[in-house]
Every structure is written in structure tokens, then in C-alpha cells.
Design a protein around this nucleic acid. Structure first.
Lengths: 201, 201
DNA sequence: GGTCTCCCCTGACAGATGTCAGGGGAGACC
DNA sequence: GGTCTCCCCTGACATCTGTCAGGGGAGACC
């Protein structure tokens, strides 16, 4: 019997996923949590074979929970299940050692099949998404451009960014402009969004 | 037996909701669609008692589908099931005649209970959300301010907005500035977002 | 050793954004 | 009838944004 922990902040979706998985003869949901920071404690207590982790959760996000899980409960394999199949998320998921990465618009049978596959030692990643993540290539942003764009993404003004990074305002403006050009965006906000989606930030 | 149609673009979530509902003895899922513009045709074919409608779907959104449903299949009651419990969405749902409005972070038992309640002729709306929607009050934006903000939300420049609405650029700037002030935002983009969330746009 | 490219850094400038001051008309109020 | 308030409208102006030109240093290449 494959033991599964579900981490999903929307309780209705969590309950629906539980109902779906318990249709399977060989899968049992042993724990449910609604916050990222409850994952490790629940895994230690219930010893699931697989942890199904949404990304956007209160407490901490699913990717951070996957990292903590890998350190604290190595026998539990993390499978990320997310709404947005963003290459940036896929990259981070691979970096933290997740065994699987699913998006919620995959066919419903994919869920149970993927859980069985990761228990059998396979890695489960949507091929199209993997190709998209690889096709993006390495970041075109220099270190400083990324630093400045990250601050801008949080809403900081040029003056604030200049202070924080010990640069002049002209320098900050130039780095923002360069980042806008490299991402093909029209504004710094859009550039930050594009960079995040592609895993460059 | 209560017949239910599910409209949800994420097939895995759709399948999970189906599994959840079919745990109930008195509920049967008779149709599933993944696009807003397939709802009416499916409802005509399968004659569901209740249509469970996500909002953000390709084709057309769930609120538009609810409106079309009310016109074409009056016997089918629409229940909106959405990720974001935004007062603006609630208002629009009530305007198009939806019988229920649920958010995905409600307790899982709420789903079947709500379906039964709307079939029995009740209206099902989260009380906190209804209170929030009412507390917002009528829009503080004047007609022209709303017109200009709507265009800005779509990314138009001041010059473009001026042309489209037959105003001078100074007038457009002034209306944008006023809207920014009334919504407590810092930029026109943020003002548009706040207005949309509150149902003022 | 010389040249080239990239990164890091900076200030000047044109265009965009948001604020401010102000006018005319309509409706409410006294 | 006069006054007040709000909406609709406009241009001037200060500030912000993004682009451009340019310099120095480090490393790769010849």
C-alpha cells in the first residue's frame, strides 16, 4: 500500500484529491496539511512514501517544503503538483530533489500513475515542460542586473535600490533598462515577471 | 439523484472533484467540460440540475457561462466555484443569477452540501465574503474615471486612451491620478487591480 | 604586448507619469 | 436668485522611467 501525504492549502481541492487517490486499491492518504511549514512534522509522524506538494501555500512554499523534506525524511519522495507549469518552478523543483513535477491540467489518471512511478524509483516530469525549461537556456542577465531586477520586483524605487546595493541611481536605471531589453519586456515589472517565469530570478 | 455538470479547465482538479462528488449516494456527475464556451451545449445535452463553474477558463469565463446558462437552460442552477474569493467576482456572480458562490478553500464537505441546498431552492454564499462585498460599498469612481482606468488596465498609454475616449491627455492623466487616489494605490496598474478586486470595474 | 569583449559603473537627456491649479456646467440647497 | 458641490475637462509642471553615450578593469584571444 503506497502511503501518501497531501499538502494543499485549498481544503476543497485537498479533499477532492484525497477522494481521487482513495479510488485506487493500492494508495492510501495517511495525512493532509494545508501549510508548507507543517509538511515535515506530518511526514515524520506518518512516514508517507510520497508527499504531494502544492507550491503556493502559507507558512512556506512547496518547494521549500520539498527541500526540508529531503533533509529530514529522505525516505519520502516529493512530488510537486502545481497550477502553473512554469519552467522556473520546474528548475527549482529539480534543484531541491523533487522526484516528480505535475501540473493540475494534466490528465487525471496521471496522478496515481505518477505516484506509482516515483515509488518505483522513476522520475516523473512532463516532457513538454522539461523541454521548455531546457529550451529557455541559461539566464542572459548578469549578476548585477539580476540583483537590481529582484529588488525592483519587490516594488522598490530606483533610489531605494541604489541605497540597498550601494550603486548610483544612474547605474540602477541602466541595469533595469538592460534587463528590460534582455527579457523583451516593456517595463521593469514585466521584466521581473518574465525572468521569474523562466527561472532566471 | 442530483445531476451535476462540472466546468473546470484543470483536468486533474476536474477529475478529483468528480471523484469527490461521486462518493455521495445522491449526486451523479453527468458531464465534464474544460472550457467556458462548452457549458451551454453540454447542459442542453445532459440536463444537469446544477452546473459547477470555475471562473477562469478558456473560451469564456465561468461568469459569462453562468449568464448564458440562465438564458438557455433555466432549469440548471449555476454554482460558481473559484480559487479567489474576490468580492468583485461575487457581485458579478449575483448579477448573472448564480445560485451559489463557493471558494476552493472552504471545507470539503461544503461542496456536496451546497449542491443539495441550491437544488432545494436556497442560495449558497459564504457569509464572510458577502459581508466583505457589501462592506466595500458603491464605487467612489466617477463614470469617466472608471472608463479611463479600464483602458489603462489593458495597458493602453495616455495618448491611446485620449484618442479612444476623445479626451485630451491632460484630462486622462487627471482622471488616472484621481482614480489612484480613490483606490489608495500607488500606480494606475495597482489602482485598476484594486478596483477590479472590489467589483468597481 | 596589444586588441577585443563583457561586466560593472556613471551621468545626461527625452519622454512618460502623476500632481496641481483652475474653468464651465448641472443639480441640490437655502 | 444666489451659493455650493461634484463632475467633466484642460494645461503646466515636478518627478520618475528608460535610453544613450561613455569610461575603467579583467579575462580571453591573437
Amino acid at each position: 500500500m503506497i502511503r501518501v501525504l497531501i499538502a494543499e492549502d485549498q481544503s476543497m481541492v485537498r479533499g477532492a484529491l484525497r477522494a481521487l487517490l482513495e479510488l485506487e486499491d493500492d494508495i492510501e492518504v495517511v495525512a493532509e496539511v494545508g501549510r508548507g511549514d507543517e509538511v515535515v512534522a506530518a511526514a515524520l509522524e506518518h512516514a508517507p512514501d510520497v508527499a504531494l506538494l502544492d507550491i503556493e501555500m502559507p507558512g512556506c512554499d512547496g518547494l521549500e517544503a520539498a527541500r526540508a523534506l529531503a533533509a529530514a525524511v529522505p525516505a519520502t519522495r516529493a512530488v510537486v503538483l502545481t497550477t502553473f507549469g512554469r519552467p522556473g518552478f520546474l528548475r527549482r523543483a529539480m534543484e531541491v530533489g523533487a522526484a516528480g513535477f505535475l501540473v493540475k491540467d494534466a490528465p487525471v489518471a496521471e496522478l496515481a500513475r505518477s505516484i506509482r512511478a516515483v515509488v518505483a524509483g522513476e522520475r516523473v516530469i512532463d516532457r513538454d515542460l522539461a523541454a521548455a525549461a531546457l529550451a529557455i537556456g541559461p539566464t542572459p542577465l548578469s549578476g548585477r542586473e539580476a540583483d537590481v531586477l529582484r529588488e525592483a520586483a519587490g516594488g522598490a524605487t530606483v533610489a531605494e535600490i541604489a541605497r540597498r546595493l550601494f550603486l548610483s541611481e544612474g547605474t540602477v536605471r541602466n541595469y533595469l533598462s538592460s534587463a528590460i531589453g534582455k527579457t523583451g519586456a516593456r517595463t521593469r515589472v514585466e521584466a521581473a515577471r518574465v525572468a521569474e517565469e523562466r527561472g532566471w530570478l
